[in-house]
């Protein structure tokens, strides 16, 4: 790793608003941090907390969940369910010593390319300041050696 740390962010973007917001950001040639790696889901309500945990375990430094604004969900209220899960998940992560900034929830409508780009920039800055996640150390407390054991059990 070079001395300059570039965080990796996994983005779960809902098909109807946020994925299109990212499309729009591109079409409008808005330049933003290339640190986001988007994964399309139909609805932010599809984001299983396990996806987030797996992303952090698999080396991501942060996870961005993005959906339609409350009241604008393509599926009525899937985003509200995402919000509930997010709130609970954040509490859990906090107990493991994982900083709040690492998992963020964003509302970005299909016309808000600028909002999405700005959020990615902001989050990238946040994570640059925090440094790498080091899941093994943080959650398992021993440089990840125990992790191997856990995985094999």
């Amino acid at each position: 790793m070079s001395d300059h740390f570039e965080p990796v962010i996994v983005g779960f973007l809902c098909n109807w608003c946020s994925y299109r917001a990212a499309d729009l950001a591109g079409t409008a040639r808005i330049k933003y941090a290339p640190n986001l790696r988007p994964i399309r889901v139909m609805c932010s309500g599809r984001v299983d907390p396990q996806f987030v945990l797996q992303a952090l375990r698999s080396g991501a430094d942060g996870v961005l969940i993005a959906g339609c604004h409350p009241g604008e969900c393509h599926y009525v209220n899937g985003n509200i369910k995402a919000l509930r899960r997010f709130t609970l998940l954040r509490k859990t992560l906090e107990q493991w010593g994982i900083e709040q900034e690492r998992v963020q929830l964003l509302w970005a409508s299909a016309s808000e390319g600028t909002v999405l780009a700005a959020a990615v920039n902001r989050m990238t800055e946040d994570l640059r300041a925090l440094g790498p996640l080091r899941w093994g150390e943080k959650v398992l407390g021993d440089n990840g050696a125990a992790h191997l054991v856990v995985e094999e059990v």
């Binding site: 990796v8 992790h147 191997l148």
Partner: peptide
Amino acid sequence: VLWDVQSDVL
């Protein structure tokens, strides 16, 4: 998508 940052463990 995380191919380049995954640890061997995982």
